[in-house]
């Protein structure tokens, strides 16, 4: 465990250096969330019947999304690693005495948590203090809170599992940057980070609820807000687990194969 812990720590210190960036992140997320909230308030006043979530549910969803924004950006991958893969230096990484998959996994987790650790606190605090229609409300009951906690952890693991697939694909396609952008945008949309999934047309919702993207951030937020509860929440968590097994499992195998290719080629 020790190398992974050190990895997390150095990432953390490293990202602390960018204090301007940290503040910028907080301000941007806050402003962004607030503007969107204003839009939804207008919508709820104009056509309350079409408003599928309750207003407090939606508000909680939006603020959680803003607070944990940096955690769930699929395309925020380590460019050092991408470069390493593209120029072949990755062959030297293989000699490290730990599994490369877990090392990169820890590295990715480290950079994400360090970014979020700083940014989520002020956003959560301020949004909790905001007056009624604007603020973040607490989860309706203990089950939602516990469910959120579990589902959040699963969501992060799943997301990083997907991120690892970006690295793996880089082994095969040399210019990953463009793909990375496209995949990133789609993932943003499919995970309900542009508009919450309950606001999409029913047919689209059905598809998205099955795809792995919704299992990353949408599920935990919907459980927190109480939109998903009881059996529905349990099912959603089950789906998260299923996707983790599939995506992380296949990732580990694919990475082993990809590395084999590099070492054979590179000599």
């Amino acid at each position: 465990m020790r190398p992974f812990f050190s990895m997390l720590k150095i990432r953390f210190i490293n990202s602390m250096q960018y204090r301007a960036a940290a503040w910028a992140g907080v301000m941007t997320q806050f402003f962004w969330g607030f503007m969107e909230l204003l839009l939804y308030l207008t919508l709820s006043r104009e056509n309350p019947a079409a408003f599928t979530m309750t207003l407090p549910q939606l508000t909680s969803y939006l603020w959680l999304r803003q607070a944990f924004f940096a955690m769930f950006l699929l395309w925020s991958v380590d460019n050092d690693i991408l470069d390493m893969i593209m120029n072949g230096d990755v062959a030297y990484e293989v000699i490290r005495p730990v599994s490369l998959y877990s090392l990169w996994f820890a590295r990715n987790l480290g950079s994400r948590t360090s970014k979020v650790a700083l940014r989520c606190v002020p956003i959560l605090l301020v949004s909790l203090l905001l007056p009624k229609p604007y603020g973040l409300s607490l989860p309706p009951d203990v089950y939602s809170a516990v469910g959120f906690f579990i589902s959040m952890i699963l969501g992060v693991v799943l997301l990083i599992g997907m991120c690892m697939w970006i690295y793996i694909m880089t082994f095969y396609f040399i210019t990953a940057r463009g793909i990375q952008n496209i995949v990133g945008t789609f993932a943003d949309f499919l995970s309900g980070s542009l508009i919450p999934i309950p606001f999409m047309p029913i047919g689209v919702q059905r598809v998205l609820n099955i795809l792995p993207f919704a299992s990353t951030q949408s599920t935990p937020y919907l459980i927190y807000s109480g939109y998903l509860s009881g059996t529905a929440a349990l099912q959603a968590i089950g789906l998260q687990l299923l996707w983790i097994v599939l995506i992380v499992g296949s990732g580990i195998l694919a990475m082993r194969k990809a590395l084999l290719r590099v070492t054979v080629q590179g000599g």
């Binding site: 720590k9 953390f12 210190i13 602390m16 250096q17 204090r19």
Partner: peptide
């Protein structure tokens, strides 16, 4: 400038 370590990294934020 900044000193080494976690705490000073955090302090440098402010």
């Amino acid at each position: 400038q900044r000193d080494a370590g976690m705490m000073s990294a955090f302090r440098a934020l402010f």
